[in-house]
Amino acid sequence: MIEVQSLSKNYGDRPAVKNISFKVNKGEVVGFLGPNGAGKTTTMKIITGFMAPSQGEVRVAGFDVFENPLEVKSRIGYLPETPPVYGDMSVEDYLFFVARLRKVPGPQVATYVRDAIDKTNLGDVRKRMIQNLSKGFRQRVGLAQALVSKPEVLILDEPTVGLDPRQMAEIRQLIRQLRGHHTIVLSTHILPEVEASCQRVIIINQGQIVAEDSIEGLLRAQSASRRVDLRVKRPTAQLEAELKGLNGVLRVAAEANPGQYQLEIDNRDETVEQIAHRVVGGNMGLLQLHVQAMGLEDLFIHLVTSEHGGAQ
């Protein structure tokens, strides 16, 4: 449905996206994951035809974004980071305006608007001015705006940013409901969101794709290592260096609390035994030694902080 080929974008001399390629199949929900400033928004804006790439090409439903921008735009519903709403309009008037703008055939406009309002639960506020709505409702109006023309592709740029936990859950629930009806590309830096909504993840860092797979696939690839949370009462100054020196310890990070460490280790039980031996033998007062499989969050941090993440 979406094909991105060797896409690059520079802002002046600064590259924002460097030669990325990926595909999104029809009906898929793909999470676009990366830290702030990784190039997520730029890539999405290029797919929607909002801006042109410096190099490369993008095809949506077989149409090139730059040769047939209108064909592409009529198939895409886009929710930018800031919902593009007019404060001086009522929710209903606004959705009528967007439906007409997106070329919904005249007689169907009212039905499409009603469907979008129903899907996003905006029925109670349909007559209210958008400027008087809370941020959560505005975000929903933004989502309704993306849905109103029943597009084949939905591009959602950080749809839950700035919402409270309950509103976040509502939006995620809504995105889950949309699965199967639309091809969805969702960008975020919030990991539970990806785990909750997406079938496949593309992780992007500093303008490059560092990993691309299903969530299970990514975790499987990562299962060669495990995470250890370690807490000791009397840490010595050399403890961190000592832990790093142990055979099988891949990474050690000291946490903000003194005596608390997060380690990445291999799969062997001997490694855990060595850590325990070192701490107990040094009489440092072992308080916690918790070994667990790597989660998406660990993987993400690993990928975006390691210089060689691109080797994935």
């Binding site: 929607t48 035809g49 909002f50 209108l70 735009k73 886009y78 800031t82 593009p84 703008l101 070329k103």
Partner: peptide
């Protein structure tokens, strides 16, 4: 953004 991504 809304205007520039609409099919117009």
């Amino acid at each position: 953004d809304l205007l520039l991504t609409a099919p117009i």
